[in-house]
Design a binder for these strands. Structure first.
Length: 564
RNA sequence: GCGCCCGUAGCUCAGUUGGAUAGAGCACCGGCCUUCUAAGCCGUAGGUCACCGGUUCGAGUCCGGUCGGGCGCGCCA
């Protein structure tokens, strides 16, 4: 959707040297100055003119269509006063016409994308810090699906750790245990291993047996990790997060495809056996410039493989699936590691996935730690959110049945939790705070949902929204205009988010939409508008706003509500 | 020590990739529910965009340095 094509076309017809990128429109600083502004800097530079001269040349030398009422140069800026109704009509038609597709640029049509995200160690319940990975990952999945990519979501199951070995020793039949009981056992086993050397040793022995392929041990590991994984997925599912494939680390032991990598490393003399009999890669031979992180251990002296070695096989496996785009969502602590993996695979001519990093959510006391018990568990966080949302819904929606109220409370809670995380840029260290992240007021998911509910309420009272959009669309007040031009910016926001693999701008866009809608809501009565034509135009604008908001919220994994 | 990320209002964060007078929310203070849902709105107040220098018509945004915070540099995964 190009809302200002009627400006851009005539200018380029008069100055054929210019391309679309040279002509960028922005909101004028104040609506008294104009309805939309053109920054002339880049166009003027291309033409070798002074910006102010270019602005004057456009104002006096370009003939615009009926949409343009006035053109006013202001130094290097050019302010246009428009026939708002004509422009508004185009925007509302586009939104309502495209419906659930509005905002999509279909940039992924016919393309496949593979993404790996979350991949929490089985012995841990997801906490808020880790959940940042899952929520960002899941939102990227939704964003790329919205752009019509064929997306496959992978979860790497780290079923090879010593901690799993300890769990295997401690629990009988894992199916007889709850996930929480399993986690308690893990903490217990870990504590015991601290002072009981024989027990710790036995954990390593289990791991060795696992690696050697002992069928009984493998079955036991599988049963334990399966139980844990189900527990984790149940928590993540409450936030609407799901996966297509689960890739078990134990399936990538001694993978024959790694021979190709080892051969390539040997050829470049980048791999050697050190004085302690470990198999080590010297990354300096592969272009790694610094001493830090120069050596990467593949195998221990006893011949067992390191995590990073198995991960190479897993990455090869993912890359061989033939997706057009491969994404790998990682905490910032994995930056060097991902670079090392890419260098090693690169030596064998294998491309590595495109990493996407996010920073940690910290507590006021410091970093979250499962072992130290310094965590906010995702399930507790969500429970508290539902409790608070239910209080509000119970006092607000007294006419609804308890089950309906409960369903709304759960959706509000998901909105609060997801939005609180997603609205923040991923490379920002966030200090977690219960009150801020569970607030339903202000810049929050529930606030956006609330705007949707208000619109739905108007639409319910109005009845069927007419499909026909009037030629002289009478939605021309400042509040209506601000809202309309903002709605029109959505496809561009989606395109940028897709290109940057970042979703915070979608959340920011939704917030601004909700704010602008609220401004409209207060300034412009819909049901009691002073003319029939205005009533229809406004209800159509309401429907368009709801549609655009619902599309944005869907990308964020949040449901637009009709009641709350 | 070396590398990467971050530093914007008392607090939590935006800032459309270098453009007109730096914006929201929370908290504080003062208003608004016989009027489409007050999970809302309006108003007051709050800023040396960490600091120093540079690049240019123009810098919160780009470059260099300093200070402060986070992360990484494992026979962990």
């Amino acid at each position: 959707m190009k809302p200002f094509e009627f400006l851009d076309g005539p200018i380029r017809a008069r100055f054929p040297e210019l391309s679309a990128e040279d002509i960028t429109f922005a909101a004028a600083p104040r609506l008294e100055v104009g309805d939309v502004a053109l920054r002339t800097f880049s166009a003027a530079k291309k033409l070798g003119m002074a910006p102010a001269d270019f602005a004057k040349a456009v104002a006096s030398g370009v003939t615009f269509g009926p949409e343009v009422r006035a053109v006013a140069p202001a130094g290097p800026y050019l302010n246009f006063t428009l026939d708002r109704g004509m422009v508004a009509r185009g925007i509302v038609s586009a939104v309502l016409g495209e419906g659930g597709q509005f905002g999509s640029n279909s940039s992924g049509a016919g393309r496949r994308l593979l993404i790996e995200h979350t991949s929490i160690n089985p012995n841990a319940s997801p906490h808020v810090g880790r959940a940042r990975n899952a929520m960002i990952g899941d939102t990227l999945v939704r964003l790329f699906r919205f752009e019509r990519y064929g997306v496959e979501v992978h979860y790497y199951v780290n079923d090879m750790g010593r901690q799993i070995g300890l769990l295997v020793l401690s629990c009988g039949d894992p199916e007889a245990l709850s996930f929480d009981a399993m986690l308690d056992l893990y903490v217990e086993a870990n504590a015991r291993a601290e002072h009981d050397a024989a027990f710790a040793e036995e954990g390593y022995r289990q791991l060795a047996l696992m690696e050697q392929g002992d069928p009984a041990v493998r079955a036991k590991f599988h049963a334990v990790t399966e139980r844990c994984l189900r527990g984790q997925l149940a928590v993540l599912a409450r936030l609407g997060i799901a996966y297509d494939r689960f890739d078990r680390e134990s399936n990538f032991l001694l993978d024959p495809r790694l021979d190709r990598v080892l051969d390539a490393l040997r050829e470049k003399e980048a791999v050697f056996t050190d004085e302690e009999q470990r198999l080590v890669v010297d990354l300096s031979k592969l272009g790694h410039a610094r001493e830090e992180g120069r050596y990467f251990v593949l195998m221990r002296a006893n011949g067992s493989s390191m995590y990073g070695y198995r991960d190479l096989a897993y990455t090869i496996d993912k890359m061989e699936r033939g997706a057009d785009v491969n994404l790998w969502l990682l905490g910032e602590d994995h930056k060097l590691y991902a670079e090392q993996q890419a260098l090693i695979l690169g030596a064998a001519g294998i491309a590595a996935p495109e990493p996407i990093y996010y920073s940690y959510i910290l507590l006021r006391e410091g970093k979250m730690s499962t072992r130290m018990g310094k965590v906010v568990l995702l399930s507790d966080f969500l429970d508290e959110a539902i409790r608070r949302a239910a209080e509000k819904v119970d006092e607000q929606c007294t006419d609804l049945a308890p089950a309906e109220r409960r369903a709304i409370a759960e959706k509000v809670a998901v909105a609060a939790v997801r939005f609180a995380i997603l609205k923040i840029g991923p490379n920002k260290n966030v200090t977690f705070d219960w009150e801020t992240s569970l607030s339903f007021n202000g810049d929050t998911g529930p606030y956006v949902q609330y705007s949707c509910a208000r619109i739905s309420s108007i639409l319910r009272k109005f009845g069927e929204v007419p499909a026909e959009i009037a030629a002289d669309f009478p939605a021309t007040t400042d509040a209506e205009w601000r809202l309309l031009t903002h709605l029109a910016s959505f496809p561009g926001i989606v395109a940028a988010a897709t290109a940057q693999r970042a979703c915070a701008t979608i959340a920011q866009w939704a917030l601004e939409s909700a704010r602008l809608f609220t401004g409209f809501y207060h300034d412009c009565p819909v049901l009691t508008a002073d003319s029939g034509a205005k009533r229809i135009a406004r209800v159509q604008l309401c429907a368009a706003t709801r549609q655009a908001l619902a599309n944005a919220l869907a990308i964020l994994g949040i449901e637009a509500l009709d009641r709350m």
